[in-house]
Simulated assay, not measured.
Amino acid sequence: MTRLFCQDNPDILTLDATVVGTRPGAVLLSRHAFYPGGGGQLADKGVIRWAGGEAPVTGFSEQGGALWIEVGGGIEIAGNVQGAVDPAFRQRMRELHTDLHILNALVFRDFDGALVTGVQMNEDGTARIDFDLPDADNDRLRALEPELNDVVAQDLAVQTSYLSMTAAHAEPGLLRSRSVTPPPSPQGLIRIVEIAGLDRQACGGTHLASTGASRPVRILKIENKGRSNRRVRIGLQGL
């Protein structure tokens, strides 16, 4: 799949486009702002609009490197359209994904470079992240909440860049997942997300422009999942 527009422009939620492929219940656009899901982040919600009406986006499917946008009603769309991402949903995913990076950075620092074993963000403003932490003290993990929120309050800049696969694998701490690496672009580049002065890691999702755009975060629960897995559940305050 080619580089996604939303990865470099997460604040732009509406784009005019031309239909370049169509079939019942799905459309291929010349461009779009949607994130199709992946890395524990849910796919964007939104609509496709055209002169005769609009249809909700119900999902995404990839074929031959092209991203098809699935629409409700089994209709066929042609001509000029507009794709619009649900702003509240995108904002929630951006907050959760950025907050998980903050928590990941703190755990990586304080627990001897513990790797991530799974992530899932939810529509209700909660998320969970699993770490390979066989001997962790759960109270130490809970105690990270004040520092997590201090990082949010500092309003640190969040920026993205790209590295070659070789350079990404050569930089210690850049690849934090035990089993998953963000897929490279057709040019063989890995996307890097950096929180100024705190964190730098490979990731393909959408994030905030700065940590201060997130609501405060609560650590809701810590669970032991198996012999070595610790699951930390977080939630955005006010949701």
Results as ranks from 00 to 15, higher is better:
residue 14 T to E: 15
residue 119 V to P: 00
residue 179 S to R: 07
residue 103 L to V: 03
residue 152 V to F: 04
residue 138 N to V: 15
residue 87 P to F: 15
residue 185 S to I: 12
residue 31 R to A: 09
residue 105 A to E: 06
residue 25 G to Q: 02
residue 23 R to C: 02
residue 108 F to I: 11
residue 93 M to W: 04
residue 189 L to E: 06
residue 126 T to V: 00
residue 178 R to A: 06
residue 41 Q to G: 11
residue 32 H to A: 02
residue 82 Q to H: 09
residue 60 F to G: 07
residue 209 A to L: 12
residue 58 T to G: 06
residue 172 P to L: 01
residue 69 I to F: 06
residue 143 A to I: 10
residue 222 I to Y: 00
residue 219 I to S: 00
residue 12 I to S: 02
residue 228 S to G: 01
residue 207 H to W: 06
residue 71 V to R: 07
residue 158 V to W: 01
residue 3 R to D: 15
residue 197 G to W: 07
residue 228 S to F: 01
residue 62 E to A: 06
residue 51 A to F: 07
residue 117 T to E: 10
residue 180 V to I: 12
residue 58 T to I: 15
residue 221 K to E: 00
residue 62 E to F: 15
residue 217 V to E: 00
residue 96 L to T: 05
residue 80 N to Q: 14
residue 214 S to H: 07
residue 149 N to C: 05
residue 159 Q to S: 07
residue 101 H to L: 06
residue 161 S to D: 04
residue 30 S to K: 11
residue 195 I to C: 05
residue 43 A to H: 08
residue 43 A to N: 05
residue 5 F to M: 04
residue 238 G to Q: 12
residue 200 R to E: 02
residue 192 I to K: 02
residue 174 L to I: 05
residue 61 S to Q: 10
residue 189 L to W: 14
residue 93 M to S: 10
residue 129 I to Y: 04
residue 231 R to F: 00
residue 37 G to N: 11
residue 75 I to V: 15
residue 177 S to G: 09
residue 163 L to E: 11
residue 205 G to Q: 05
residue 149 N to L: 03
residue 94 R to Q: 15
residue 173 G to D: 02
residue 198 L to H: 04
residue 5 F to V: 13
residue 224 N to T: 13
residue 118 G to C: 00
residue 29 L to E: 07
residue 94 R to F: 10
residue 119 V to F: 04
residue 41 Q to L: 03
residue 182 P to H: 14
residue 229 N to L: 03
residue 110 D to S: 10
residue 76 E to N: 09
residue 130 D to E: 12
residue 31 R to N: 11
residue 236 L to T: 08
residue 96 L to H: 05
residue 92 R to M: 13
residue 85 V to Y: 11
residue 76 E to Y: 03
residue 170 A to K: 03
residue 212 G to W: 11
residue 36 P to G: 09
residue 15 L to P: 10
residue 33 A to Y: 08
residue 192 I to S: 03
residue 19 V to G: 02
residue 204 G to T: 10
residue 169 H to Y: 14
residue 40 G to R: 01
residue 67 L to I: 14
residue 230 R to E: 04
residue 13 L to Q: 13
residue 121 M to T: 11
residue 71 V to C: 12
residue 116 V to P: 14
residue 209 A to E: 09
residue 62 E to M: 08
residue 27 V to K: 02
residue 144 L to Q: 07
residue 89 F to H: 08
residue 218 R to E: 01
residue 168 A to L: 06
residue 109 R to W: 10
residue 58 T to N: 08
residue 84 A to R: 15
residue 115 L to F: 02
residue 64 G to M: 12
residue 167 A to S: 11
residue 87 P to S: 13
residue 91 Q to A: 15
residue 125 G to P: 01
residue 40 G to F: 03
residue 153 A to Q: 09
